[in-house]
């Protein structure tokens, strides 16, 4: 995936079954952000793979003061890429393998 400067990783092991999964997001490269970023650390949150959309979480992060509005799309894209990877991995495990 494209380097957005914002890293999103699994904060727990994915057993491939639960729909709600813990993710951890942090800024790896501040220069990629448009807005002034207050370095608050890694943000851990749970994301429902079936019912939620990355845009909504990014919006909540902006509203909570972690990021500025102008970086919402970047944050959202970073989450979306990770979520797509998790889903792709799950499909591969289900359809491939045994």
């Amino acid at each position: 995936a494209e380097d957005t400067g914002v890293r999103v990783e699994l904060a727990e092991e994915d057993d491939g079954k639960k729909t709600s999964i813990a993710l951890r997001l942090w800024v790896e490269d501040q220069k990629k952000l448009k807005g002034k970023y207050k370095d608050s650390g890694a943000i851990e949150f749970t994301f429902d793979l079936e019912r939620e959309v990355p845009d909504a979480v990014a919006q909540e992060m902006v509203e909570s003061g972690f990021f500025l509005e102008c970086d919402m799309k970047l944050v959202s894209k970073s989450i979306r890429d990770r979520v797509a990877l998790i889903k792709w991995h799950r499909e591969r495990v289900v359809t491939g393998g045994e």
Binding site: W26, E28, D29, G41, A42, I43, E44, M61, S64, F66
Partner: peptide
């Protein structure tokens, strides 16, 4: 510890903790 919690009005919890140095890109 330096872990803090932020709860958004929609109910989502954000747990904030320091990022280990090793996880940051060289500037």
């Amino acid at each position: 510890s330096s872990t803090t919690q932020v709860v958004h009005s929609a109910g989502r919890r954000f747990i904030v903790s320091p990022v280990p140095e090793s996880r940051l890109k060289e500037q």
